[in-house]
Design a protein around this nucleic acid. Structure first.
Lengths: 232, 232
DNA sequence: GATTATCTTTGACTTAAGTCAACAAGACTG
DNA sequence: CAGTCTTGTTGACTTAAGTCAAAGATAATC
């Protein structure tokens, strides 16, 4: 982690959806207490149980937030990209981070210290509501993940993810996996071997065509059905 | 669902942790817009996708919030008891409920309509911070659940749950399952048959002694080890 | 651009946990 | 208290997905 003089940090903060509707003066106050920090690819940002004296916004790069089993298996909770935040949970409850965070790429983050930030929230209803929306959104994602892990099989989870990427990327019937297959396996709650087998199976069954990280959806309706039923 | 004239609702609201530090006048405003509603055991409170024009506080009884698979299998997200809230996610993001909610017992709930409540949050920083804490706490629980479902086997999840109940109930080395075994299976992400088998296995292995819903912990340290490793 | 290192794929095997079915035990209802 | 309904237990079987191992393919680094 390297400290780093931010350039027009106020502007960037103001353009971040979390700060929609927050008064200019407050943003200026905030930029005074915010710290821009850089992490190299694979660098740990925090680990489970670490005291959390603030939280992070991603300025550049991507971060994975994940749980780790004693044997070293990972379950990715979410991938955080530019404009998104992580680690808020430690600010508002429990004071320690409940997960691990590692930079997936060389990244530049904005660190917001708890005390100053909480003060700002309490004088800024718009900020409070934005935060409530962000946490609610994440609860929704987590509920969906619990649903998937418990009630759907790996092919169903994979199908849902492919459709999600396809919608997000809006590139016709093509999509690009944004993670290595190993990381994708961690996100879907499985292991690389299983993911690999199921991708081939979906290709053999004529649902998709695979070309490295690029995938073409050949039969969208069957993929949708698979994602909904959760069973192959 | 039956409407019901609340008695001293203001007092009850004031005693609820969500409203810690909220000004008396605001509480009185709130009690004007809050509605007490009753649900009989097994009655549906809302279903996935229902428009959420507010959220609930449990006054009496218990509610299960759960996801449902197409084949009818349930995954309980959490059990909500007196003083706790549910359904806030629909208020602050997405406008619809992401899960199902059913009364586990005859219950009395307080319904808080979105618009009035949001107004109240925006003039009441203490309430905003309490809500942020509540949602953060729930994110922590969900993260733990994802961890358990993905990285621990059923015996590990069960062991963790038994230890949780034992701590919560503070009754020496005894504890009582607070759910039917079928419901507990849904909470742990498994089915009754598997839960039954694993309970017997833990008893045979000398970890616990089972007497219906009452369980005695015979070997706490091995149970702790099982909960941590996640493997039998 | 050579050399590590990491990632991906496939095969053979093991296993945790689900399905199906039968039965026993409670618990609620009339 | 008889009878129905729901809940819990156990057995035999199936299967999705994990483990271990080996080889090939990318990608990172000096």
């Amino acid at each position: 982690m390297t400290a780093d003089k931010g350039k027009p940090l106020v502007e960037w903060l103001g353009a971040t959806s979390l700060f929609d509707g927050v008064r200019g003066q407050h943003l200026r106050d905030l930029s005074g207490i915010a710290m821009v920090v850089s992490y190299k690819r694979r660098a740990a940002i925090f680990s489970t149980g670490d005291p959390g004296n603030g939280f992070y916004l991603v300025k550049e790069g991507r971060v994975k937030v994940f749980m780790l089993s004693p044997e070293g298996k990972e379950q990715i909770l979410h991938i955080v990209g530019p404009g998104e935040s992580f680690g808020e949970v430690a600010v508002f409850a429990g004071q320690s981070f409940p997960a691990h965070a590692v930079a997936l790429e060389n990244s530049r983050l904005v660190f917001l210290p708890r005390d100053d930030f909480v003060t700002l929230v309490s004088v800024n209803p718009a900020l409070a509501l934005n935060l409530l929306a962000a946490l609610s959104q994440r609860l929704r994602q987590f509920a969906k993940m619990i649903d998937a892990l418990s009630l759907k099989e790996v092919p169903g989870r994979l199908a849902a993810h492919l459709l999600y990427l396809n919608d997000k990327q809006a590139g016709g019937n093509r999509l690009r996996l944004e993670l290595s297959k190993t990381q994708l396996a961690s996100l879907l709650g499985t292991i690389p071997e299983t993911l690999s087998r199921i991708l081939s199976k979906l290709q053999r069954a004529g649902f998709i065509v695979i070309d490295g990280a690029d995938i073409t959806i050949v039969n969208r309706s069957r993929l949708v059905e698979l994602a909904e039923l959760g069973k192959f």
